[in-house]
Structure formats: C-alpha cells, structure tokens
Design a protein around this nucleic acid. Structure first.
Lengths: 144, 144
DNA sequence: GGTGAAACCAAGACCCT
DNA sequence: AGGGTCTTGGTTTCACC
C-alpha cells in the first residue's frame, strides 16, 4: 500500500474537512474497518504528512477584526531578534523570510488600528516597514 | 458564564493544540466532567467561535515545496473572475483583497518553479503581477 | 486487512444548586 | 443556567487470524 494511495487521500480530505470524525465514520466512507483506518492514520502521522489536528477559531469573534501584512526590511543579523520578539505577540500569526528587497513578511491580526500602530512602531526599531491592510478574504482553500 | 471565561479559553487552547482530544481528556485538564466540557464546546461552535476542526498537512510531504506570494494589480471588475478561476487551483491557498495600489494578494504553494511560472502567466491575463518567493517560515503561531 | 473482547467515550435523560 | 451522575450504545485499542 502506498502512503498516498486513493484511500489515504480520501482519508486526508475527510480529516481536513472535519478532524473530529471517528475512525468508524471514516471507515464507512472509504469502505474499510475502523482499525484499518486507524492504522493508516497512524502511518500518515508517523510519516509527518499529518502534522497535527487543530480547531479553527474565528478571529473576528475574539475581537481580532483587523488583518494586515507588514513588510519589514532589515539586516539579516536582526532576524533572530525579530523572531524572538514576535514569539510572545499573539497578534503575529506568521513570519516569512522572503526573497527580494523586502526581507521579512509578517502576517498580522489585531484588535484595532491602535494595536497595529503599536506593532509597526515596535517593528521600526528593527528596520523599515511597509504595511498592507486587508479588506477581505476572497478565497480560503483548506484542503488538498 | 461568559463564552470566553478562563475555562473556555483553556478548552480553546487545548483544541487548537490537538483537535482530537476526547471530552474526558479535556475535562481532566480543566477540572470539569465530560458532559460539561461537551456542552461548553457546543456553545462555542454555535457562537461561531470554533469554525471547524482540521488536520494540518505538511505541504512539503505532498511535493508542494515552493511557497510564494503573488501581488496582482487589476481592475475590481475582474476580482470575481480571478476568484472563480482560483477556486479549482489547488496551488492557491488564500486570496486577500488589500488596500493600496496592489489589489489582490495570493498565497501560493507549488510543486515546482515551472508550476509557479504557469500560474503567473495565467494570472497576467487579469492584470499585472509581482511575485515574492518565500525562503523559509520563521514563525508559525497557531493558537490564541 | 479483518475479527472479537475489554476499556473507553459520547450523548442524552435526569437531578441538584 | 451550569454542572454532576448515570445509562446506553458507539468507539478505540489490542491481540490474534
């Protein structure tokens, strides 16, 4: 059996749509028994294909109504400092090291424009910033 | 009881760390019984705070080794066309409508530089593009 | 992959405060 | 309204085929 045969791809799709499905429910969908599905899932986890299972939270409902991207241009020697600083800021969702004149790209979710301003001010101690506000999300693909 | 009291915040954190925890396991963590935890979770779902539960897949392991952002500048009248076109492209993870001269920002994950080139060529029929390749991810925050 | 048994869990009814 | 207890049926897990 291949780790990515058709059955496992269907299992992966099911788990991406609803990670709390029981093995028995998935077994019925793919035409196997629960222990077989459990074994396949265990192997997908061991292979690192499934990284983990997480509840998707609606940021709006927690008051995080503002989404933005901040492009930070700074010397590479400061990356680690930025990373450590960001670790304890819950508003910072992701940091990417990107190619080009912009060096870091930060995915941000804040409660207010004031909070965003504070972040930008703090970031400007590392380098120069350019902020892009997000109006809306047109597409959110969450399965392969 | 508030929907976001300390107990519910701990439940949310637990579910974001491992969405497949049983009610009983969470109950032991927060000092309640399983039915109480189930009831709290049901309310968080009903309130839309928990949107869904999903398995996190490692894109690398599926061959999607290249990450990029494409900034697309095009007339607003074409947004819908872009959205529909992107819907069936598994390489396109997210599309944001952003403020500024760039109009759309696409979060991309491809298997090769050739696939990226194809996407950029197709997108250039909608407007002008600017592609930013991602070297690495410095931070990935997945809980609030 | 499947089967069967034991431990565990989910879901609902019911009670207490 | 929120939490606890109990019961029933489904589920997981493991050994074994």
């Amino acid at each position: 059996m291949s780790l990515l045969d058709e059955t496992n791809q269907r299992i992966l799709t099911l788990l991406q749509q609803n990670a709390r499905l029981t093995h028995a429910q998935m077994a019925r969908e793919v035409g196997l028994t629960a222990p077989s599905v459990a074994e396949r899932i265990r192997k997908l986890e061991d292979a690192g294909i499934i990284e983990n299972y997480t509840a998707t939270i609606n940021p709006q409902k927690l008051g995080y109504t503002l989404k933005a991207f901040i492009h930070l241009t700074c010397p590479a020697t400061r990356y680690k400092a930025v990373q450590e600083w960001a670790q304890h800021k819950k508003e910072i969702r992701e940091i990417y090291h990107v190619l080009g004149q912009v060096s870091l790209m930060l995915d941000i979710q804040t409660r207010s424009i004031e909070d965003l301003e504070t972040l930008v001010q703090q970031l400007s101690t590392f380098g120069t910033t350019e902020t892009t506000l997000v109006f809306s999300t047109l597409l959110h693909q969450n399965s392969w």
